[in-house]
Write a protein that binds this DNA or RNA. Sequence first.
DNA 1: ACCAGCAGTGTTTTT
DNA 2: CACTGCTGGT
Length: 829
Amino acid sequence: MTDAHAAAPGAASLRPVVLDAAHVTGEAGPRPDEDLLQGLNPQQREAVTYRGQALLIVAGAGSGKTSVLTRRIASLLRGREAWPSQILAITFTNKAAGEMRERVEQLVGDTARGMWISTFHSACVRILRREAEQFGFTKSFTIYDSGDSRALIKRLVKEHEADAFGLTPAATQSKISKLKNELADAESYARSANLNDPAERVFVEVFGAYQRELQKANAFDFDDLIAQTVYLFRAFPQVADVYRRRFRHILVDEYQDTNHAQYALIHELTRPPGSDAAPLAGSGGMMIFEPEPAAEEGASLTVVGDSDQSIYAFRGADIRNISEFEKDFPGAKVVLLEQNYRSTQNILSAANAVIGHNFDRKDKKLWTDVGDGEKIIGFTGYSQHDEAQFVADEIEALRRAGVDYSQMAVFYRTNSQSRALEEIFIRAALPYKIMGGTKFYERAEIKDALAYLVAVANPADEMALRRIINRPRRGIGDVTIETISRYAADQQITFRDALANSSALGVGPKIQAAIAHLDAVLAEASELMLPSSGELAPPTAVAEGLTLLLNKSGYYDALRASKDAQDEARIENLDEMVAVAREFARNNPEGTILDFLTEVALVSDADDLEDASGSVSLMTLHTAKGLEYDAVFLTGVEEDLIPHRISAGEPGGPQEERRLFYVGITRARKRLYLSLAMTRAQFGEVSVAMPSRFLQEIPVELLHWRQSPGDVNSRGGTQSRALNARRGSGSGSGSGFGGSGKRYGDDLVPLARREPNGNLERFANKIPAKVRDNGDLVLAPGDRIRHDDFGEGRVDAVTGEGAKRVAHVRFDSAGPKKLLIKIAPIEKL
DNA sequence: ACCAGCAGTGTTTTT
DNA sequence: CACTGCTGGT
């Protein structure tokens, strides 16, 4: 993500490009595009070869859009229609960007170097770093993630006593975010707001204060990265022109999930250069070497998207961006990709049926010629753990049938659902990897470490300093912080500079020494990472600087001295952090501390640095977008979960939830499992769950219930309410499940037979909270054991080492299982 | 300044 | 349940 290779934008197009073999052969042989079109259907070919100002590729799920996009880029490069530096491709995640770059490189070789392929946010950071000085920031600005901005907003809400008007920090934050996505700022909002309402007045105040604080801290929040870039372009047309001249081909993936600010950014970039009102004649002093005459066109724009997969309305995505593309860009060409190369027809038919329930959409039907494939499997567990056990068993069965773990994924609506799955997977010794969730970078010790780095990289960032000033404990409390803050205000210096004057603060000698020491450590680290001599810091500077900060600040010592067992894990996490910095240095030899912090701030859930090879992937439905697996388990298919309770009341909510469900279904190549539980522990309480309305939208003949909601009901006793309650459109007598439960499941024997007298009490969320430890229990093949849930069984084999020893057990009634010996609830008989 | 313990509270998805 | 914020004691 560093900028090391890119030349200054104005000069970029003058840069020579090294020709590689592909260029040369392409020149002499048949049309350079020939091999790029290999294996493409006519629509895909059109999407690759069309040339014009605007192209919309409506790409259904699995229709090969990534392939089309990469080949389109490759064909532009090979045909010499564009230099790499003239291409800007926007993807949804950094990972997608990396993959796209790789695939283009496979097609054209190193020529791909100078292209910008990145997310909106990364691209904007690059632009802002170059241009920050134009409008009151410096290039060393830092990026506030949602946690940072929440902390800041919290402080401001308190200061302005805004909670008295019903403005919680969370509500304020989301309102500000929404406004920024609409390109509104405090002033413009104030103009349209009803200022007679005191709540509105105080909100405007907080909004304004928040923005001033960000500016003071030389920081942007996530939304600012986009919005401020748009402001920059509008306020400084000459700056915008630099980028308009540079980027001649702009491609945007996942266009259905762009918000207004991103839309505006694309609009600004695709306008013809020099088209803004009166350029500053002469004195403007722009150093554009302008070889070309004025009759320049705007960049050509290609967008790819599928309105059925729009799932980010909650963060401002505006479906109209794609549905009205043809109006926005008159003369735009539209290409439809409907043939699916991913899934079986059964899966696609289910997907089509579900999404067909959304009104107000252009009808579009995915189809394939690979055949029907397996039926979709349904399963209803008694509890979420029972459901998880089914998933685990089924994964093992697939594994035995030759499906690699890495080709299986488990999806859920909310992050909290991963818990139950994890608990069961650990016991079953199933290798899994959670994508996203509670992220590494959100752990307190990691945020502290980053705050130390920010304090060095961007001394204006007072938040970072406040965070670390008493970590580890130095005896600096609120009172002292206030003293420093007041001193800084009086002297008109920054908080950071105030630290350097510790003797003038008028605090006790102990505290003064502590402040002086912190100041010295920060200064030393700064000299290492940002040498005042102006020379480049060595690549290892970030890792070394971080180590230095953690050591000399006493952070490591404090953790080591602690008796808390968790602090040991924290040390390991910090070591991991240092390793990440080393890895970064290896990949970006010229990367600075700011590049590092930028990368860390912009990593997303789906990016996940390590690959998930050899393990099953667990993730939310949102994270699953754009991915595909041979086998997909969609869990928690219940009312109030999907569609989520909160969304039910929101306008457009249920429709978006349906799209989310649709996205989940269409990730599956060969096998799809839909599962739910009859009871779910919400928070503390166990409550009865009802099957999702979406299940009824799947034609009966596509879905085979291994255990239908009706089966579970008939055994669980007293729960009839759960099934008979039908809501609104539930005329569905012909749909997936009814009272009898007999209609399903008779023809096929369930894989894992559970204990005969199972009932709700028996299975309801019965995972004990305490972590069990069997210590050095030794098992050998032939041993008989008893398991709390599965009853008695015989050990077939033992694999693994130490704490990871796994027993392969054949239970008398529950069938074969793998168990992690150390923690399984078992005893030897 | 710091800590332990208690009460209250929210409870979706994320660059 | 899990996390935050507050209180009262040291």
